[in-house]
């Protein structure tokens, strides 16, 4: 029954599942408690522009998505600070403009884009060693930044006004958090794809938040729950020959649903 573990691609897939869970635990926690899920959704969709740019320039689309999604995330932050436009509107615009850019970039590159779908809907079974290294490095960066700025992230998430009053550079910290979300998006792209990844980022923390009020425990438990559920989705997708990204998301959704019942 567990013969699938012998396959190289399955081993890589399980490692990928663990690596995404680290990003979900650390950054997903802030996304949930700061209530910036839809903004993170916008950043993830904007990352498709980076994927398209990668195609156009002939570089690894995941690598190209790193600077692109960071720029998208920071411009989102800048718009909020400077321009009189509602956050809600800015989210909607970034969401589709990023995707539109990606499509145009792919258009400009003549020829067929064979694995475009895997970036949109994920394909954990085709994760390469290079992808794993990229994910690992990004995870390490995320963990270091979260550790160094844990006080600041907690401050701006809890009470931004008070943070400013005690001299915390809230604009800078908000920007840094958005950049971290952009990096997490890149970690998650290959596993569940741009369109589905916001659920993977948010659900583990949303589940665990019902059971703990300690942010450290929340991050650790979200990482563990994320790894278990993503692996479960992966196994189910393999056994029933279903699309892996969609299966993982549905497993997460079902787990959230069940956790609410248990909590009741």
């Amino acid at each position: 029954m567990f013969e699938f573990i012998q396959y190289d691609f399955m081993q890589r897939a399980f490692i990928a599942a663990i690596l995404v869970s680290v990003a979900c635990g650390a950054v997903g926690t802030y996304v949930v408690i700061k209530k910036i899920v839809s903004m993170s959704g916008a950043i993830s969709h904007a990352a498709f522009g980076g994927v398209g740019l990668g195609y156009l320039l002939g570089v690894n689309p995941v690598v190209a998505a790193i600077p692109f999604s960071i720029v998208a995330a920071l411009s989102m932050g800048a718009v909020q600070e400077k321009v009189k436009i509602s956050e809600d509107t800015a989210i909607g615009i970034l969401w589709s403009v990023g995707m539109a850019l990606g499509i145009i970039f792919v258009n400009l590159k003549s020829g067929y884009a064979p694995d475009l779908f895997s970036y949109l809907f994920g394909s954990i079974l085709t994760v390469s060693n290079t992808d794993l290294y990229i994910m690992l490095v990004l995870d390490l960066i995320i963990l270091i930044v979260v550790f160094l700025f844990r006080r600041e992230f907690l401050g701006v998430s809890f009470d931004e006004e008070f943070s400013k009053v005690v001299g915390l550079p809230s604009t800078l910290i908000n920007m840094l958090l958005l950049a971290l979300i952009a990096l997490s998006v890149v970690v998650l792209i290959k596993v569940v794809g741009i369109i589905l990844l916001i659920a993977l980022l948010a659900i583990p923390a949303a589940i665990c938040k019902q059971y703990t009020y300690d942010i450290r425990k929340l991050m650790i438990s979200s990482t563990i729950i994320g790894a278990i559920l993503t692996s479960l989705g992966l196994i189910l997708a393999f056994i029933f020959n279903l699309s892996s990204g969609a299966t993982i998301i549905l497993v997460l959704g079902a787990a959230l649903f069940i956790s609410y019942f248990i909590q009741e």
Binding site: S157, V166, Y213, L218
Partner: peptide, 14 residues
């Protein structure tokens, strides 16, 4: 929000 009383007060010491 996942924060306890002491951590909240400690923020005043930032």
């Amino acid at each position: 929000f996942p924060i306890d009383v002491f951590e909240t007060v400690l923020m005043g010491r930032y």
